[in-house]
Design a protein around this nucleic acid. Structure first.
Ligand code: FES
Ligand code: FES
Lengths: 160, 160
DNA sequence: ATCCTACTCTATAAATCTAGTCAACTTTGT
DNA sequence: ACAAAGTTGACTAGATTTATAGAGTAGGAT
């Protein structure tokens, strides 16, 4: 189960992907727009900054902005930065593998082998979806239309 | 991330799938074989019993046994019983859907739409794998060939 | 009767989620 | 140069869930 930290982080990133490039968004605004506890979002954006996903600027006119264009940011990596490995279990992770103390033969552990497949399935979805594509999902009329490639889409709008 | 409860539960179920039909396995034995804290496993098997996956018998010669043949038990349902919905986020669950308080328009929420796809991918793996098949994974020599005791099923394993 | 086994209840340590307070930095007005 | 206001950042703290341990209770076999 995704933690609220990751959920809020993703919502914030989607929000940031919606501001015009070069401009910043205030934590207070992001929090209000998405109904996220402000102080929690503070900490989350701090982690995303340390992980290199966003840049921050203090003082008047400050705020947060994406560090790279949203088409180059993978959803899976955002989740990894906030919630750790995608794999349901650490011994099935490819990025942050860690042995299970309680399994003697990892290569024949049924649980691990099933979860490896699950990890593959999750990564297939999350790592092949860019932040831009994810944002596009929410923009499309009724969520049925899929978008292809990284090229895209409508750029207008941002809620007031 | 799968909790340890589910991980231990799955290991216990695999163990139970390995005893001869009609016979029982002791909690102490399952715990020792799989290096699971006994008292925790006690509670886990209790939940699995309440969920109807296993039967228990007290007294000498007692223990636990599967309630149905392992080929009729889906791995996804075991996980659901212990850790709740497979979906990374509740609003993306099909079995235990619950609205997000913090999202105004659920049908256009980018986070939900992505997680809906993730849920689909996870369910595809976990719901189409039976306990028997999962156990078979651990039995096979190196994960490429897999034979299942009883009715032999050959199953190609894509990735590694 | 007594042994074996599942079951229940209570308790402790860690992680998660949320709020509050104050400190550090950056721009702007004078 | 200086003060003030706007903004992120860091530190503490309480409520809730997760993971584990201990002691003891209840039910069944011989
Ligand atoms: S090796 Fe990780 S669950 Fe068995
Ligand atoms: S509706 Fe659940 S995350 Fe938006």
């Amino acid at each position: 189960m995704l933690t609220k930290k990751a959920k809020y982080g993703l919502k914030a990133m989607v929000h940031l992907a919606g501001v015009r490039p070069g401009e910043t968004a205030l934590v207070a605004d992001i929090a209000a727009s998405n109904q996220i506890p402000k102080k929690f979002l503070d900490a989350i954006l701090g982690e995303l900054r340390n992980a290199g996903f966003v840049h921050s600027k203090k003082g008047k006119g400050g705020g947060y902005m994406l560090a790279r264009p949203p088409s180059e940011i993978g959803v899976g990596n955002i989740v990894r930065a906030l919630d750790g490995p995608l794999a349901p279990i650490q011994c099935a992770s490819k990025t942050v593998y860690r042995r299970c103390d309680d399994c003697t033969d990892e290569t024949r552990c049924a649980v691990r082998l099933v979860m490896l497949r699950a990890r593959e399935a999750i990564a297939e979805v999350l790592d092949k979806t860019s932040l831009e594509q994810m944002r596009g999902l929410g923009e499309s009329g009724d969520g049925v239309r899929l978008l292809v490639g990284g090229g895209v889409v409508r750029q207008a709008m941002d809620m007031a």
